[in-house]
């Protein structure tokens, strides 16, 4: 056997014969098996095609709704993110005020703040006067008011 194995490739006459075999009747049965498989595959693909034909409108509607929902969510998200960004805008305003503030003296700021305070206290007094007048006009005394509360 060793000698036979050491033969050069050119001397391997007969080695090119097919060493494999198949189960009995394999090639006789194969054409009908393949036809059956093709028929069953065609039936299956027809069933799938039929299913898609039936559900196609519903699928289209579902995709449309999903699309609208996606657009709406994206739009809301964009609006919300703009709002979140607004402090950054305020920051810019603050920075502008800080820069421009150098043009005003400290006394001017104090005067403006005092004026604002005065205005608000005047407004408060006016409101209090209005309440007192109302209570007097309606004849509601302090005791009745406490009882109501």
């Amino acid at each position: 056997m060793k000698n036979e194995s050491n033969l050069k490739f050119n001397n391997l006459q007969g080695a090119n014969k097919n060493p494999f075999s198949v189960p009995e009747g394999y090639f006789e049965d194969f054409p009908s098996r393949i036809q059956e498989k093709i028929v069953s595959e065609t039936k299956q693909s027809n069933r799938i095609a039929q299913f898609f034909h039936v559900v196609k409108p519903q699928l289209a509607l579902a995709f449309m709704i999903a699309g609208f929902a996606f657009i709406a969510i994206t739009a809301i998200d964009a609006i919300m993110s703009n709002r979140v960004n607004s402090p950054a805008t305020n920051e810019v305003y603050t920075r502008i005020i800080e820069v421009d503030a150098s043009e005003y003296s400290e006394q001017q700021f104090i005067d403006i703040l005092l004026e604002e305070e005065k205005k608000s206290s005047e407004q408060k007094n006016e409101e209090t006067d209005e309440y007192i007048h109302y209570l007097m006009d309606e004849g509601i005394d302090y005791g009745t008011l406490i009882d109501e509360l």
Partner: peptide, 13 residues
């Protein structure tokens, strides 16, 4: 079971 080659054919494969 579906390989019926000789020793040489086996070696070639």
């Amino acid at each position: 079971e579906y390989f019926n080659g000789t020793e040489i054919q086996l070696k070639l494969q």
